[in-house]
């Protein structure tokens, strides 16, 4: 607890300072609320309109979790395939990078044309933004296996399968988690973007409605929700990582001590 306080006081005070400056300047300069609402008003709105957005929030959470799970499993599966079949990697790697160069904003309407307004195009968008960091991270993890350990495995007569499950897979876990962390935050963003296209509910819908009617305070509420959601997802992955990769975490703690 003490450590969190010691490490955290700087960013927290910067954040508080930012809010204070924002609050004061919006009062001094008398900025209209539809242009830039003061943080105090956003804060009040967060609690006041909870019944309005709770269903939207739930819908976005469901969508992002589903998309995240699909995207990450796809990412891992792709990474394993590409790693185990080097020819496949050579063939598909450039294509994978290209898939990331298409702006999602451009792709999204196309997906709607092809798949309609249902769940499918939304999940595809989230999958597209989630799978890439996971695949790249996992591929790097698989490839950067320690040469000493690899040499030992080969001398000991390990089969390709044994090398993969006993060496490459556990070795890649820390980098897979780095990928998962990026994907976790992307998944919320992907979900919101996909909701802009047309959905019945979701934070994206709530945001579009608010901005088109100049209820800027609610737009800020939506931004706040997206941030909190991303942080929660991120935190969940960090928690999982600490539970699963204990061998590495203890090492770092000892070095810090």
């Amino acid at each position: 607890m003490r450590r969190i306080f010691l490490k955290g006081w700087r960013p927290v005070s910067v954040l508080i300072l930012l809010f204070v400056v924002w609050e004061i300047s919006s009062r001094i300069f008398d900025i209209p609320v539809w242009l830039l609402p003061p943080p105090s008003q956003v804060w009040v709105e967060i609690f006041a309109s909870w019944p309005n957005y709770s269903s939207h929030l739930a819908s976005t959470v469901r969508l992002s979790v589903a998309g995240f799970l699909i995207g990450c499993s796809t990412g891992l599966a792709v990474a394993v395939c590409l790693h185990l079949v080097p020819k496949l990697r050579e063939t598909l790697y450039p294509l994978m990078i290209l898939s990331q160069n298409i702006p999602i904003i451009v792709l999204a309407p196309l997906l709607v044309i092809w798949f309609g307004f249902g769940l499918a195009p939304k999940l595809i968008i989230i999958t597209l933004v989630c799978f890439f960091p996971v695949t790249i991270a996992a591929l790097d993890g698989f490839r950067q296996t320690g040469s000493d350990m690899m040499h030992y495995m080969k001398m000991a007569g390990a089969t390709t399968q044994q090398i993969f499950w006993k060496l490459e897979w556990p070795h890649a876990m820390p980098s897979v988690f780095s990928g998962l962390k990026i994907a976790a935050t992307y998944s919320v963003m992907g979900a919101v973007i996909s909701e802009w296209l047309g959905a019945k509910e979701g934070i994206g819908v709530y945001m579009t409605l608010a901005s088109s009617s100049f209820r800027t305070t609610q737009v800020f509420v939506a931004i706040f929700l997206i941030m909190v959601l991303s942080l929660l997802f991120f935190g969940a992955i960090v928690f999982l990582e600490k539970r699963m990769i204990r061998w590495k975490e203890t090492g770092e703690e000892e070095r810090n001590a």
């Binding site: 000493d148 350990m149 040499h151 030992y152 001398m155 000991a156 007569g157 006993k166 061998w247």
Partner: peptide, 18 residues
């Protein structure tokens, strides 16, 4: 033929996660 001898490398090459 791999795996017919037991081997100890120069560096311990222990697996850090085990």
């Amino acid at each position: 033929k791999k795996g017919s001898i037991s081997y100890m490398p120069q560096s311990p090459a222990l697996f850090p996660w085990r």
